[in-house]
Write a protein that binds this DNA or RNA. Sequence first.
DNA 1: TCGATA
DNA 2: AACGGCTTATCGA
Length: 850
Amino acid sequence: MNELKSQQDYFLLSTVYDAESNGAGIKLFDVSSQKIIYFLDPYGHEPYCYSLEPLSELKAIEAEFPPNTVKRIVTTKKKDILNDSIVNPSQIVTVTPSEVPKVRDILKTHGWETWESRIKYHRNWLYDTQLVPGRKYWWDESNRKFISPQSISEGLEIPTPVIESLAKYSGLIQVFQDDFLQEIPNLPIVACDIETEYEEGQIPQSSDPKFPIICICLSDNNNNEIALVLSRKYVEKGKPWADVPQNLNIESFEDEKLLLRRTFEILKKYSVICSFNGDNFDFPYLHARARHLKIIKSSPILWNRRAKECNFRNAIHLDLYRFFHNVAIKTYAFGNKYQEETLDAIASALLGIGKISLNKGIAELTEWELIRYCLRDARITRDLLLYDNSTPLNLIFILARISRMPIDDLVRTSVSNWVQSLFYHEHRRRGYFIPNQSDIHLLKGGGTSTEAIIKGKKYKGAKVIDPTPGIHFNVAVLDFASLYPSIIGTKNLSYETLLCNHIECKKNIVPQTNYWVCSKNRGIMADIIGFIKDIRVMWLKPVSKENLSRKNFFQILERSLKVLINASYGVLGSDRFPLYCLPVADSTTAFGRDAINKTIEKAESLDITVLYGDTDSVFLLSPPKERINEIIQWSKKELEVGLEMEKVYKYVVLSQRKKNYFGVYEDGGVEVKGLMGKKRNTPPFLQDGFNEVLNLLSQVNNLEEFSKAKEKVKGLIKNIYAKLEKNKYSPEELSITMQLTQPLGSYKVNSQHVKAARQLENYHQELYMSKHNGKKYDEGFIKAGQLIRFVKTKEGDRVTPVELMSKDIKHDIKAYKSMIESTFDQLLGALDINLEELASGQINLMEFFN
DNA sequence: TCGATA
DNA sequence: AACGGCTTATCGA
């Protein structure tokens, strides 16, 4: 430990399970040397789990533990919030972390449970030391501990009134101030991408690394770029592309071994190594290839085959594929800006630059073409991490701090892990015993108090108000700010407060259910979620708009809290979540339905017409301003949930269907919900037509203008019909896109996209067989998750994949006509364009418009 | 035509 | 590897 100096800045990045020492390994970023220091646990922390059997019983079976397993068994004291009591569990301290599962198994043979035995040791270490990944520390050699010299960075202070009003959350504000309000360090970062030799139909695999690595590109955050290329005599050099970057260094190698060694040498200079799919391909392959070439000793890659992870001893690996694949990140941090999780799709959506598109295989590229292709991948991977003032990198740091997850774990795990970690940490901080999922289930029951509307769901969800169909002018939409998190916070919902064991609490009934909520103790989930919601609304949201000098930091913090808060209810409602308690999820939606119901009543009592509403919103027909304010004030007082005026529509067109409408704002902006023309499976020619019609409608200000617009709309639709009949649309424009959710072989049904997928598979197989002496390609070309694009056609299967369309295959005009009808019927059905005659089949849409 | 399923 | 509610298309009885 003597390498740590006092009064020097270190950032704790990660803790890992150190297999060699069978203990915790710690990765610290040393600011002065700009390197990661790796060392073993300096705290002498001991692994353990708990048992609720009396000490004497456990001592009696001690002989069953193999030698060097259990160090000691001691009685401890913990607060058991589930039963609102104090417990004295026996703490079984083991020699190393890997003994904990063994102890668990031995106790199980006696029918005894264990607690806190499934927490990964390197995370347990963080909860007990209360050290925070992503945070800055100093080393105090005399006490052999990390200390925090100055906790809040300049300009990030929370105003006193905010601190005071958040004091009710059991010390969470103090934790927040101490641990989260600091600079994010500047780190040496490099992105890496590799290309291998390739044969058609064969995917390079780390299990059989038979193809040489022919190019490796590295791009760092200091704008250094290196391309390492294997010279191959049979490959043309080609010509450099037009704008080869000045800073690009190209190194050529005759020998692949030297190329790999040089790569390893470069990688060792960096603290953060990022990749796109590096856990699954680039680094396993690089490592396997090093083994194949017998230079494994120079590889810095630690490959965990079972966990499908690649790590580095003196760096952290961020696989951006895994981060951007995360549903919570995709939806709440990036607002679904990208739809597919490929490097090309994500980079195109966020950076506006995708991969280089190739019209030939990797094997056919000239050396320069190969460099260009590989470099682009490395560069956009780096740029994704640094996108928008390093938003992804900063999100990773802040989320790691809040959820107390090691940075590389955070990137690889889903939001339910993050919330779990956050909750576990808070239990430890407060000295609470962490219950097993079965404890909660046994005490609170698995039954629900409500019945779900949709078959197969566990409990009832949100309320959607039946829309009043038609055109409505001047419509205000009010919505509850963070409805479910607010409810969890203000109604004190938590696994221990629902159905608590106090008789006097049984009167605090959850609306329309048989549940009651504790009024004696604050719930731990209610505290954490309520606190995050409050600090975000009270402080971060306003300050991230006002404070210009610290805007960036505040925005990132605000966004991180948004990710956690928005995902929290969903996680609580999932039976895979270790602290899952069905009554909590059930009560959350029950209070939600109650809130929207009472709001409708209130609005109607003020003579305001409620046109529509969904989960947390109400659409009000031209409400006077002062009445809106009255409703907002009432909600704050009576419901304890913030209600806000979200938007005002110049007009909104509601159909008779729920979740299907479009509205036009004062500035002409259009919002479309649920309508078919917007869905991704709708053929592009219809999407385009749909958008053009919307554009016409967005210019309408009153009823008279509608009739003018209608004429134009008619013309537009007529034109679409004509083009369809005259065969003016390309197969791409006519294509219907659907995802193959299962492997092709496991489909029992023979629906359109399955038929198309089978045709494509057969086509590729035949092509392959003709090139490989009639041998089949066993793995199959069409994989689960792939998007299938097909055209509705007249012959045979009645569908043809876009790729197999040719001049002599005709599209099915009738089928497309009915698609046009249903798409525009949805859009215009609510307008006074009467399409009933169409539905009855008397005339078609084209005749109608004539 | 209707329920089940994606 | 977060929830439930809702709409649409298609299959098979």
